[in-house]
Amino acid sequence: MSITDFLTDLLNPDLAFLPKALAIAVMSSIVCGVVGCYVVLRGMAFIGDAVAHAVFPGVAVAFVLQGSLVLGGAVAGVATALLIAVFSQNRRVKEDSIIGVFLVGAFALGIVIISQAPGYAGSLQQFLFGSITGIPDRDLYVVGGAGLVILGLVLALHKEFVAVCLDREMSRAMGLSVFWLDIVLYVLVTLAVVISLQTIGNILVLALLITPAAAARLLTDRLGLMMLLAPLIGGASAVVGLYLSWSYDTPVGGTIVLVATVVFLAAWLFAPRHGLLTRRWGRPGVPGAGDDANSSPCPALSPTT
């Protein structure tokens, strides 16, 4: 399908769900890209995973009761995030096994709950793999509003989040409340996951959080740039992914994640300073970080041919 056909479909009133899905996919990718930067830099992907699983029973309850899926997921996810934050303060408890137990248990609970609803097999598939149809208008505003709140909090607390990422001990000595900053960050991750569930699906949402941020990390050594690149990569993957999924009738969540994965692989191979290929056949004199000590570590490998 050509780009113009896609644009025509987007504007076709009979296909009103398509622009809605696009808007939600792009908004959630942007939010996930920004929040994902902290997740990647702090190496807390497991929390994204735990939360993604734990929101499932909340979503299931909301489904059975015909309530807002986003709201149900948010409640369950935030509860889990708080539990993890409390547990992970005490470094003597191995939090990963506790999370493992909770998370699979929560997921099982979700499956049992949702099996009570008539015709659950189809909805189960929607939860797991995402879907672009059947998004209520209300969710558009919920996702947009939640996205703005998340980005606003990131902007407001960025300096503090960075300090805690860099050095928890020093942050405590500076009088920062590390515990509360952790909780806020976990809740932000949860909300980012929840608003993305609808289109991407439960299983793939972690990729939306991690992949764009990881690709951006490969591309730059500057945090500010990374936090611009990650939502850009995420947003672009959402647009391209939705286009491909619409054209070739592939599942939307999977296609978006695959596009992001391709971007990640490209960054891994061709990133200006750290790419596998660029490093190997690296050009000397790649702009350094503002000082003159960045000579190629291995000048003999510089291309002469």
Partner: peptide, 9 residues
Amino acid sequence: EFTWDFPIS
């Protein structure tokens, strides 16, 4: 104690 691989100048 410091996260040295953090992208920060």
